Computed example of a mutant assay.
Amino acid sequence: MAGAERDRDGEGRARSARPRDGLGRPLEYGARGVPRQPEGIVRGPAETVAEAQSLLDAGRPFHAHEVFEDAWKTGPEKERPLWRGLAQLAVGLTHAARGNPTGGVRLLRRGADVVAGWTGPSYGMDLAGLVRWARDLADEVERNGRPVDPTARAPRLTPP
């Protein structure tokens, strides 16, 4: 669409104003979507983990990915691999739920590898358990190729 006006946010950056469903897929203009996750929010690690878990529990892994992405982009540079790996896990679950097994498997495994290699603080998260969850889910999705229920398959970030 050459020459078409693009949606812009309040700061003039290109940003689609189309509503989105719970898995982050764009809907038609005027459709009723779910509230968008605000971007660029600076949260501490505990708040990031709590907010992401709440979204995962609600079946909104795409939105949890955005919370992790905020931590990755606004937090200390040395912690970026942890938050990026967690964002990859959330978006891997998103792809698996959307019925994109190739993308789901790839991102779940990539995120698991990053998280498995993290040697810094865990902020109370069960990182070994998240790695197992991601690898097991990737194997399942690769085997059967069917979409997964994002609420039923949401990981627990912290031990029970």
Rank of each mutant, 00 (worst) to 15 (best):
W118T: 09
L107W: 13
T119C: 02
A152P: 07
L137H: 00
A134C: 11
G145I: 01
L137M: 01
N100F: 12
P121A: 15
S122F: 05
L137Y: 00
V148R: 13
A134M: 10
A152G: 14
G124P: 08
P155I: 06
A97H: 10
A97C: 14
A152D: 14
H95R: 14
G85P: 11
A138N: 05
A112S: 13
L130C: 02
R98A: 13
A134G: 13
R132H: 05
D126Y: 03
G85M: 08
L108A: 05
L107P: 07
V141I: 13
L157E: 02
R143D: 14
R132W: 05
T102R: 15
L108T: 05
M125S: 05
A90R: 02
A154I: 04
G117P: 03
D136G: 07
L86K: 04
T119L: 15
D139H: 07
V148K: 09
R110G: 15
E142C: 00
P101H: 13
R84K: 14
G120K: 09
G145M: 07
T158A: 14
A90C: 15
A96T: 09
G85K: 03
A96Q: 04
A152Y: 02
L107N: 12
W133R: 01
M125V: 08
G120M: 07
V114T: 15
A96W: 09
V91W: 08
L157M: 07
E140F: 01
G99W: 04
V91Y: 10
E140R: 15
G103E: 06
V131P: 06
P155Y: 01
G111T: 03
P160Y: 03
A90E: 07
A90Y: 06
R146N: 11
Q88L: 15
P121C: 00
R143G: 08
P155N: 01
D113N: 13
Q88N: 12
A134R: 07
A138M: 07
D149H: 04
G145L: 13
L89H: 02
A87F: 02
L130Y: 08
A154K: 00
G104L: 14
L130P: 05
T158E: 15
A87E: 08
G103M: 03
D139L: 06
H95C: 05
R109A: 03
G124K: 03
L137T: 01
V105M: 08
L89F: 02
Y123H: 15
A134T: 12
S122N: 12
A138D: 09
L137I: 00
R153P: 05
P159W: 08
T94N: 01
P147R: 07
A90F: 11
R109M: 02
D136M: 09
R109N: 14
A87Q: 13
V141M: 10
L137A: 02
R106H: 13
S122G: 03
R135A: 05
A116P: 00
R146E: 14
R109I: 06
T158R: 15
P160S: 12
R146M: 12
V141P: 03
G145R: 15
R98D: 09
G145W: 01
L107D: 10
A112D: 06
D139T: 14
T94V: 08
L86M: 14
Q88M: 12
P155T: 00
W118A: 11
G104V: 10
A112H: 11
G92R: 04
T102S: 13
A87L: 11
